[in-house]
Write a protein that binds this DNA or RNA. Structure first.
Length: 349
DNA sequence: AACTCGGGGTC
DNA sequence: GACCCAGAGTT
């Protein structure tokens, strides 16, 4: 009797052991809504399933179709994304929804070439939507699949070289049908069995196919990429608050970090400061509230938090300035860093 | 090819 | 603390 192919093993395993996730259909016969896959893949870029789940549920409730999303306001989309991070994803998701609704008759493309043209959709996401939503025969490589493959075939490569080799090998092992299940199966094996630090070889369906199974060296795969040590940065954050307990935020027009989000005035830690002209305010009191620590991908931030109590007299604010009531903060697009700062401020009021 | 983009889970 | 996560866009 001929032994089972890798794809058959993975698909059979997946049908019995798949993770139940809010963006997955309840059974395999159910038709998949491409918008569900489209949305989940944006959220899942570089973000763990556990973190995404509550955001996905909220988002889908508010924007159940791509047309409703396309007709929403960007600020509202960013607000519901607040806390999830990598806010460029939300900006691009919104752009793509508009393009699909206004230029593509509201139909999400079912092929790699058209998908990858859309903003926020790169190689991985284009392939993932093709495979998962449309069951197309394309190779999908995410962090999970790259790790599983690097161990399965004991690949002594890293970075882009590893990805190329994985692509070549997976192309030879891709099934003729049910690639949607194969792709998600490899992901689930990576997420639940072949994990980065804890490897449960005894539960793995690919045990007999794996070159590093039960070996101490398994944990070394994929080979690590040496990373630079994180830099420290310091800055000052200013919280202007009036007697109505409204806090002054700026809508950040700078590209890059926190694009289009609401931020507090600050200086010292970015090239493009989130500047405010304090002269138009009459400041009654000033407190130093201590230091907030926040970790970014490439640096650790120590931010001095300064509370400034200001008069209520009507001032002509610039367009990008807005006083937000404390109880309304959740309605606005405010990154986690600034929620942490406000929390520190409240202890000092 | 190397940077820049968040924030939280996990160990 | 360090690593990792259903990566993409820019330089």
């Amino acid at each position: 009797m001929q032994s089972l192919k890798i794809s058959e093993i993975v698909i059979n395993w997946y049908k019995k052991n798949f993770r139940i996730l809010p963006w997955r259909p309840k059974n395999f016969d159910q038709k998949i809504d491409p918008y569900i896959v489209f949305l989940s893949e944006f959220m899942l870029q570089q973000t763990t399933v556990k973190t995404v789940v509550p955001y996905f549920i909220n988002f889908l409730k508010k924007y159940p179709t791509i047309e409703i999303l396309a007709k929403a306001k960007l600020d509202d989309v960013l607000a519901i994304w607040s806390g999830l991070g990598y806010y460029r994803r939300a900006n691009n998701l919104y752009k793509s929804a508009k393009i699909i609704t206004n230029e593509l008759n509201g139909v999400i493309p079912n092929n790699y070439e058209d998908l990858i043209k859309l903003p926020g959709i790169g190689d991985y996401t284009a392939a993932a939507i093709c495979a998962i939503a449309f069951d197309k025969k394309v190779v999908v490589i995410d962090g999970n699949i790259e790790r599983v493959a690097s161990r399965l075939f004991e690949l002594d490569l890293r970075g882009n070289d590893l990805k190329k080799k994985v692509r070549k090998i997976l192309f030879l092992n891709i099934p003729g049908k049910e690639n949607s299940l194969f792709t998600q199966g490899l992901m689930d094996i990576g997420a639940t069995i072949c994990k980065p630090k804890i490897i449960n070889c005894e539960r793995c369906p690919l045990l007999e196919n794996c070159r590093v199974a039960f070996k101490n060296s398994a944990i070394n795969y994929p080979l690590k990429i040496i990373k630079e040590k994180k830099i420290k940065r310091t800055g000052n954050f200013y919280c202007l608050i009036n007697s109505k307990k409204e806090i002054l935020f700026l809508r950040n027009i700078n590209l890059g970090l926190f694009e289009n989000m609401h931020v507090l005035p600050s200086d010292g830690w970015l090239k493009d400061n989130h500047n405010l002209d304090f002269n138009i305010f009459s400041i009654k009191e000033r407190f130093d509230c201590g230091v907030i620590k926040h970790s970014f991908t490439h640096f650790d931030l120590d931010g001095k938090v300064i509370l400034l109590k200001v008069d209520d007299n009507q001032i002509k604010l610039k367009d990008n300035c807005i006083f937000i009531k404390l109880e309304n903060l959740d309605m606005f697009s405010i990154p986690t860093l600034y929620h942490k700062i406000v929390k520190l401020i409240l202890k000092n009021i």
